[in-house]
Design a protein around this nucleic acid. Structure first.
Length: 199
DNA sequence: CCCTGATTCGC
DNA sequence: GCGAATCAGG
């Protein structure tokens, strides 16, 4: 099908009447909505009063035929050293919910300052014992900065990286592990830390 | 996943 | 000029 005066006129009329491109295409027949849109643009009657999308459209004009230059490829160093383990930040006491299940006190602790918190290994239940242990350890932690970490220091992060109140445990690591005993306890959880309690 | 219009570009 | 392919939003 070609764009005869008749068809173009119908297109104009329908477009002005706020029919969608797909509707117009279906009405005219023999053309796709893309064809309609293309024609609309060529006719120079694109934006209709409402929904002026040009703003967003022009804002980010994607370059399609330019693989030669400009490569995005900014990859975050995921192979670094520590990488937030299970659930860092151990400030609050272990809270229990209505069911007496230890709420990941850690989880809520850090939410405030930063926005782009790394994905937390969601539903992860840590034994109260382990958490308590961690709370203890924090008191004696070396509080090392990133640069002070070595293969022998616990790399467990504490606090919010977005604030000054952030440091690494720094205690002696467990053989072959990146964390001290206490933090290994919360970092490496068996599949199920909670035994099914009969009821 | 459905839809929308916008844009690009080979034809 | 045409419109499929692709893109960006809703």
């Amino acid at each position: 099908m070609s764009w005869t005066d008749e068809r173009v006129e119908k297109l104009k009329k329908m477009w002005a009447d706020e029919h969608s491109a797909s509707e117009i295409a279906k009405e005219l027949g023999g053309v796709t909505r893309n064809a309609v849109i293309g024609k609309v643009h060529r006719l120079g009657l694109s934006n209709r009063a409402t929904s002026n999308r040009s703003a967003t459209a022009k804002a980010a004009p994607k370059e399609r035929a330019a693989p030669a230059a400009a490569k995005p490829a900014p990859k975050p160093a995921a192979k670094a050293k520590p990488a937030s383990p299970a659930v860092p930040a151990v400030k609050e006491e272990v809270e229990l919910d209505e069911n007496g299940i230890p709420i990941s006190a850690a989880r809520r602790a850090i939410i405030p300052a930063g926005q782009p918190l790394p994905p937390q290994p969601s539903a992860n239940e840590i034994s109260p014992e382990a958490l308590a242990k961690v709370s203890e350890v924090e008191k004696t932690a070396k509080r090392l900065s990133l640069m002070e970490l070595t293969e022998k220091t616990c790399k467990w992060p504490v606090g919010d990286p977005a604030t000054e109140d952030f440091w690494f445990c720094g205690l002696g690591v467990q053989q072959g592990k990146p964390y001290c005993e206490a933090h290994v306890g919360v970092a490496f959880q068996p599949m199920s830390s909670r035994r099914d309690r009969r009821r």
